[in-house]
Nucleic acid binder design. Structure first.
Lengths: 209, 209
DNA sequence: TGGGATTTGTTCGTATGTATT
DNA sequence: GAATACATACGAACAAATCCC
């Protein structure tokens, strides 16, 4: 979500295990799960790498994501509790605060906004699928998009919440469609191949303890 | 899919490995994947068991499945190639032929019809999610439904295909909604706890070679 | 093209935790 | 309630495949 890693980056079991202070067995399990979620590519006898979705897979992922999030807003329109409303507004305020700061934080918050909505449907299945697609879309944008500019997105988030609170399902769906279309639209120009990464250094912030 | 196993059935790594002639490591990996798909419950230091979705989870799974399959028929209406049409008709013919025979076969075919439709959208993501939910719903029905009666379902499948071929998206969606509602409706009466199973014997047909 | 260094695939042993008599 | 049997969790080690110079 924060683009600490880039598609194609190598993920050797040993190095991961050393970084997170676990054995290869554990690192291997984690890689297996991530492969199941489409974030890691796992080919037999080959080193695991961060997934590099093809252009077709990218398009497909975005298309299904749009359909799924449409379901989310349809379920939520006019049904947000006061508490949920407050949570969403607090989140958007956080996004605004972060919008001037470091990019990884604002990218993460933008993704988490959608996750928050999915969570509020109360459907674990919907939540899981939206989360999975959200993560994959973040990965795709790091492959295909130009640098993130989050300013517009925050105001769109605000409008979506307003439509949900107003109970205008149709409008909320339209807004969400346009919002996600706009996000997908960023994935138009291929960025040049990324720099070499130092796995050990990059993952340092993510080690517990 | 064929209800060879029932929710709650124990799945010890050892027994599985012996049955399929693989080591515990491999059996363990398989259990991990199945847990990711929600078909197996994996609690720390405890024996794995076939998942027993709660009533709420069951309801949720069916609800999301209906929403997802609605997307499938919307994408397919008026867009089926002659070849796809033939494939679907052949499948339904197979369902009819099997409807008098052994139950496991017809249950499997009924589930696979929906999988076939999802596949024809050409969307790997949609296909995967519909498959996952289809398998889970089969599991749920084996927990909560009375014995399967597939006669009605086959004719409903036929009607859905007809609406798709006619290009009537709205009607196709309605038919699919009603069809899946009817399937979910079967999950109303709790069946009594199932008999004890002999894992070794039940899995015998599934061993390769 | 060849060969050494890496990295994965798999098995097995031990420790630890759980169920059952 | 304690002891025994059983199952899982984890890591070490070895073989085979791959990578890279």
């Amino acid at each position: 979500m924060e683009r600490a890693l880039t598609p194609g980056d190598r993920l050797p079991e040993d190095a991961l295990g050393e970084r997170f202070n676990v054995s290869r067995t554990i690192a291997r399990q984690a890689l297996g799960q991530l492969a199941g979620e489409g974030l890691v590519e796992l080919r037999r006898n080959r080193i695991a790498v961060v997934a590099s979705p093809s252009w077709e897979e990218a398009r497909d992922t975005f298309d299904v994501r749009i359909s799924l999030e449409r379901i989310v807003v349809q379920r939520l329109a006019g049904r947000l509790s006061a508490e949920q409303q407050a949570t969403l507004e607090a989140h958007i305020a956080g996004e605004e605060r972060a919008s001037g700061g470091p990019e990884p934080a604002s990218i993460r918050l933008a993704t988490e906004f959608h996750l928050l909505l999915a969570e509020m449907t109360g459907s674990p299945v919907l939540r899981r699928y939206v989360a999975e697609l959200g993560y994959r879309c973040a990965l795709i944008l790091s492959l295909y998009s130009r640098p993130h500019s989050s300013d517009c997105a925050v105001s769109e988030h605000r409008e979506i919440v307003a439509a949900l609170v107003a109970g205008n399902a149709g409008h909320a769906v339209t807004l969400m469609d346009h919002h996600l279309d706009a996000v997908a639209e960023r994935a138009r120009i291929l960025t040049e191949p990324q720099r070499e990464h130092d796995l050990i250094r990059l993952l340092a912030p993510y080690v517990d303890g």
